[in-house]
Design a protein around this nucleic acid. Structure first.
Length: 783
RNA sequence: GCCGCGGUGGCGGAAUUGGUAGACGCGCACGACUCAAAAUCGUGUUCCUUACGGAGUGAGAGUUCGAUUCUCUCCCGCGGCACCA
């Protein structure tokens, strides 16, 4: 009898051994390469809860599987350490973010190591290290040099409580994504990245990616391509024109009024002609000062004000139509003005009904009507011909806006720009990078970056003319840091380049990328944009960073709520590992259900997995000279299934097949040494400690991870005999064992000889027989 | 409102180029072991029915020899977007 299973001793022993042997180093010379990546975490002071490592366990199993199959696997981990939480914590406690992050990293690393996640720690990177953000700054300069980073006065989302600008993606339900505080609109000079330049590619290239369909669709919706036309309306008795974007140029004859967004420049220009100017001005002021929140609470009740005294000319029929200003038209989309077709647009209809404007139907659902010479023309065709007739152009518009990257905050990578009175905006020379974050700052936000107050930071000499100048004091959005980190992992200590071309070509693109679905439009789209930009600049030869993407589902607390400190329902992985062991925890998180699903933690279910681990341990007692024929077949089936399931991230069913196998051995109480070794090999990516222990106990002297993946043979997947169902009129009635390759006639004979079937068939006409080889035989009887 | 995903036992879930629904695990019941309990092992466990049999994958229809799987209509839940012209 083997000694009792003690996970604490076993796991500690092997973790120390592996650590000492640097067991997870990258570099299997000559082997095919694979890059398996997790979305790297923000090291928060809270430590991990059991939900965090779910994705890491999956990529670990995947990496271990690839290694044992003989691949050279790059599987790195790092820290996305810039950002608001550490800074907010510093404001509260005066503890420097550097210190907060340093401590959190240690805690995270310990927890990760206690799960034996096989990261190559030699490649660890931290985005708040000057050696890292020097290349983030370099990236900024590359974008700047190539016209993809620019500064402009813009209305930005401003969080009152965080005192900072937020990207559109960080505004959720008109509230700050982080503090849930109110977000208002504010005009300010801002740095932007020109992501819109890649809008079309960002949609087109999605097609080639092996990503969850919903993620692709969400991203496509976010980019929001719409195809239509830009049409020009003249303003009566004036040289001014109003350009509009519409997806329905075919409805032009039904355009009975126009609407300008409150911000539209033409309003001010038309002032002399507007008879009710004081009302218009009042409306515009009010609309512009409205926060998004207020606009939302006003609901769909549309408001507006007619520009009394000015009229536009509908270019289709030269009718004079009134012009309104209304805040249901957005300044940031299209041209900030629309032609309103109340008969065929719900919003225009609502507005027209409220202000008693004419509603003219111009199609019957298929063909145009009341459209002059275009009557009877099909809608799709009319789009083009009407646009042509009025001298418009077909145009594509996107919902996507440029990425606002400046933050009036301390804890981020400084933007490497210097302002000189003589030379203007001067980029910091690459040789002067990194522009390091100073320590002599007060963290309390004032609306301007704390970097302004730093004596060591703010004042510099102009790199061009050497006169007194000032540094840009904004820092970069942390999403900039995380939009290129996967390149750095390929060459993390390179002092000359962000990563060498060779290292990038060796490893990129990432073969398997795993992380939460909450990054659908933020991180993933930014990373794709940066990759496309780097390709344009000639640094890389591919256009997409992540070939395959999988999302992990959340782990919900046992009470059905989200795990949260405030609910006091957090399960700490340290406790789970101590009580049940790391192998059990790894296996349990994968066994809970489909990887992508959100599932509740269950203390009794984890016990079931622990029982399985103990059962595996007992298999040592059943080793004899040979396995039964049946067990051998089951082993080959299990090897095949495990391989398929790991590749498709169906870890839960792989584990259930391990359970079936262990149950079978326990039932038969015998297994050959070789067969047990094969079983340990396929289990080892999931449960590395117990399998290593048993492997050595069977007399092996080098790690199971350095062994090879067992091969199954096709002819051992089946015994040749198979049990099929006999159906009568489609209902399963009986089972029968036959030879796998038996023909239909022979099977029918056997069915007829079966006792229970004799009764059923007696005196009835067999109308039809359907035999599906090795599965069922269905006998259709006359009534 | 629009787009996407999902709905299977007491519970987590398995099974889709249409082919025995409920694998595996939890829970529960009974049994073995034990003075006893725990642990472990064994047996059973979709529902109704003593049985024969019948019903059954959110509801309803359809296609088919056969539907959890395909089609249509509807209901419910989740995620994303949301006055985007």
């Amino acid at each position: 009898m083997s000694k009792e299973y003690n996970h604490r001793d076993i796991e500690k022993k092997w973790q120390e051994t592996w650590d000492k042997n640097n067991a997870y180093a990258t570099g299997n010379k000559g082997a095919e390469k694979r890059y398996v990546l997790d979305m790297f975490p923000y090291p928060s002071g809270q430590g991990l809860h059991v939900g965090h490592p779910k994705g890491y366990i999956a990529t670990d199993i995947y990496s271990r599987f690839l290694r044992i199959k003989g691949y050279d696997v790059l599987h790195p981990m790092g820290w996305d350490s810039f950002g608001l939480p550490a800074e907010n914590y510093a404001i509260k406690t005066k503890i420097h973010p550097k210190e907060t992050i340093r401590k959190a990293k240690i805690q995270y690393k310990d927890q990760i190591k206690s799960l034996s996640l096989s990261y190559d720690w030699d490649r660890e990177i931290t985005t708040s290290d000057p050696e890292y953000y020097r290349w983030t700054q370099w990236l900024f300069l590359e974008l700047y040099k190539n016209g993809l980073a620019y500064k402009k006065e813009a209305k930005v989302n401003w969080c009152e409580s965080c005192k900072t600008v937020l990207a559109n993606e960080q505004v959720v339900d008109n509230a700050c994504d982080r503090c849930k505080g109110e977000v208002i609109q504010k005009s300010q000079e801002q740095w932007f990245f020109k992501i819109t330049e890649f809008a079309d590619d960002l949609i087109k290239d999605l097609k080639e990616l092996d990503w969850p369909e919903s993620t692709k669709i969400n991203q496509e919706n976010w980019i929001g391509k719409s195809e239509g036309a830009e049409l020009t309306f003249k303003v009566k008795d004036s040289n001014d024109v109003i350009k509009v974007f519409t997806t329905r140029p075919d409805t032009l004859f039904g355009a009975t009024y126009m609407v300008l967004a409150p911000e539209h420049e033409l309003i001010e220009k038309l002032k002399p002609s507007i008879r009710n100017w004081s009302f218009v001005e009042k409306y515009v002021k009010k609309a512009i000062s409205k926060t998004e929140l207020e606009r939302l609470s006003d609901g769909k009740d549309k408001t507006g004000m007619v520009l009394d005294g000015v009229m536009a000319i509908n270019p289709a029929n030269n009718e004079e139509i009134p012009i309104f200003v209304a805040d249901y038209v957005l300044s940031g989309y299209g041209t900030g003005a629309i032609m309103a077709v109340p008969a065929h647009d719900d919003r225009d209809r609502e507005f027209a009904e409220k202000y008693d404007l004419p509603i003219i139907e111009v199609n019957d659902g298929e063909k145009l009507v009341s459209s002059g010479e275009f009557d009877g023309v099909a809608i799709e065709e009319a789009k083009k011909s009407i646009t042509e007739k009025v001298g418009g152009i077909m145009k594509t518009t996107y919902r996507l806006r440029d990425w606002s990257v400046g933050r009036q905050r301390y804890w981020g990578a400084p933007i490497p720009i210097i302002y000189c009175d003589k030379c203007g905006e001067v980029p910091v020379p690459v040789s002067d990078l990194p522009v390091t974050l100073p320590d002599d700052v007060d963290f309390v936000p004032t609306g301007e970056s704390p970097l302004k107050d730093s004596k060591t930071f703010h004042s510099v000499k102009c790199p061009k003319c050497d006169s007194d100048a000032e540094r840009e004091s904004d820092t970069l959005d942390t999403f900039v840091c995380s939009s290129w980190y996967f390149f750095r992992f390929t060459d993390p200590t390179n002092f000359e380049e962000f990563a060498s071309k060779k290292a990038i070509n060796d490893w990129m693109p990432v073969d398997m990328y795993v992380g939460g679905a909450e990054h659908t439009v933020l991180h993933l789209m930014y990373s794709r944009f940066i990759t496309k930009a780097l390709k344009r600049f000639g640094y890389i030869d591919f256009k997409e960073p992540f070939d395959t993407l999988r999302h992990q589902g959340m782990i919900i607390a046992e009470d059905g709520r989200k795990m949260s400190k405030s609910f006091n329902n957090i399960v700490n992985p340290d406790d789970v590992i101590d009580t049940y062991g790391s192998d059990t925890m790894r296996l349990y998180e994968m066994f809970m259900g489909p990887f992508k699903d959100s599932i509740s933690w269950s203390t009794s279910n984890i016990l079931g997995v622990r029982r399985f681990i103990e059962k595996v341990w007992r298999l040592q007692d059943y080793v004899t000279d040979s396995s039964s024929k049946e067990l051998e077949i089951l082993l080959h089936q299990t090897i095949k299934k495990t391989e398929e399931d790991i590749k498709t991230f169906k870890f839960n069913t792989a584990i259930s097949s391990f359970m079936v196998f262990a149950n079978k051995v326990e039932e038969e109480k015998k297994i050959s040494k070789d067969d047990l070794k094969s079983f340990l090999k396929i289990l080892s990516p999931f449960a590395p400690h117990i399998t290593e222990e048993m492997w050595f106990a069977l007399g092996e002297t080098t790690s199971i991870s350095k062994s090879d993946w067992p091969k199954y043979s096709e002819d051992k997947l089946s015994s040749g005999k198979v049990v099929i169902a006999i159906q009568i009129n489609g209902k399963a009635r009986e089972e029968i064992e036959i030879n796998e390759d038996e023909n239909q006639d022979s099977v029918i004979e056997k069915v007829k000889e079966t006792d229970s079937m004799k009764k059923r068939l007696e005196g009835r006409e067999i109308k039809k027989v359907i035999y599906v080889k090795g599965k069922i035989i269905n006998i259709v009887l006359g009534s």
